[in-house]
Amino acid sequence: MAIKLSNQRYEEIKRIVVRMFVEYGVSCVPINGFEIAHKMGVKVVPYSAIAASKRWLLIKKSEDGFSLEKDYGQWYIYYNDEKDYGRVNHTMMHEIGHIVLDHSEDSELAEKEVGFFAKYALAPPVLIHKLKLDNPESIAQTFEISYEAACYAYSYYQKWLRFGGRDYTAYECQLLRLFDLAS
């Protein structure tokens, strides 16, 4: 049986994303995972920086990327720089999610949480709404995410609209103010 997050946990993750944006001064689209990682003090390492003879070990661990903590609390994100920018940026946000949500081990639950974290952080529905984006193509272009990620974002945006999206929550209002879209 697949793990499902509770509505309460989804809401908590959304608030965590907005707090992260406030803390690190994220206030424009596209949302850049590299910029956030830098502001967090996370060391970012492309796979190509590792000797070719050892690179296969990275790819064996993950085709896209992974994070690990070493050196007494110093976080590192390793990412496959042969992937396109949209995929790499998603990987960055995914790994930032592991760090911010304080995941200490791999699990189906952790992956579910960071999958949602990355989706919400890269293209929040309230920003899609305020920017009047009405299809996956415009979402992909505006947020510089892959078309596949944009389809998921658009689907989530449609769900957000159906279930009261225009009644903004406190964190959505905060997000709109941060991005100077509150009016």
Rank of each mutant, 00 (worst) to 15 (best):
K4G: 00
E11R: 14
E12Y: 10
V17K: 03
S27T: 03
C28H: 14
C28M: 13
N32T: 03
F34I: 08
I36L: 12
A37E: 07
K39M: 11
M40P: 14
V42S: 06
K43Q: 14
P46M: 09
Y47R: 06
A51V: 00
W56R: 12
I59G: 06
K61D: 08
S62Y: 05
E63K: 15
G65D: 09
G65T: 04
L68S: 09
E69W: 06
D71I: 12
Y72K: 14
Q74V: 15
W75T: 06
Y76R: 12
N80K: 06
D81S: 05
Y85E: 11
Y85I: 03
V88Y: 01
T91H: 08
T91R: 02
M93Y: 03
E95L: 07
E95P: 13
G97T: 04
G97C: 06
H98V: 07
L101P: 06
D102K: 15
H103E: 05
E108K: 13
L109P: 00
E111T: 05
E111Q: 09
F116A: 01
F116P: 00
A118H: 02
Y120W: 05
A121W: 01
A123N: 02
P125K: 01
V126Y: 02
V126S: 12
L127F: 08
L127E: 05
H129Y: 15
H129S: 14
H129C: 10
K130G: 03
L131F: 13
D134G: 14
N135P: 01
P136V: 03
S138Q: 10
T142W: 03
F143P: 01
S146C: 03
Y147E: 09
S155E: 13
S155K: 13
Y157M: 03
W160E: 01
L161S: 07
R162H: 10
F163H: 14
G164C: 14
R166Q: 15
Y168P: 03
Y168S: 07
Y168H: 14
Y171I: 05
C173P: 00
L175N: 02
L176N: 08
F179S: 01
F179C: 01
L181A: 04
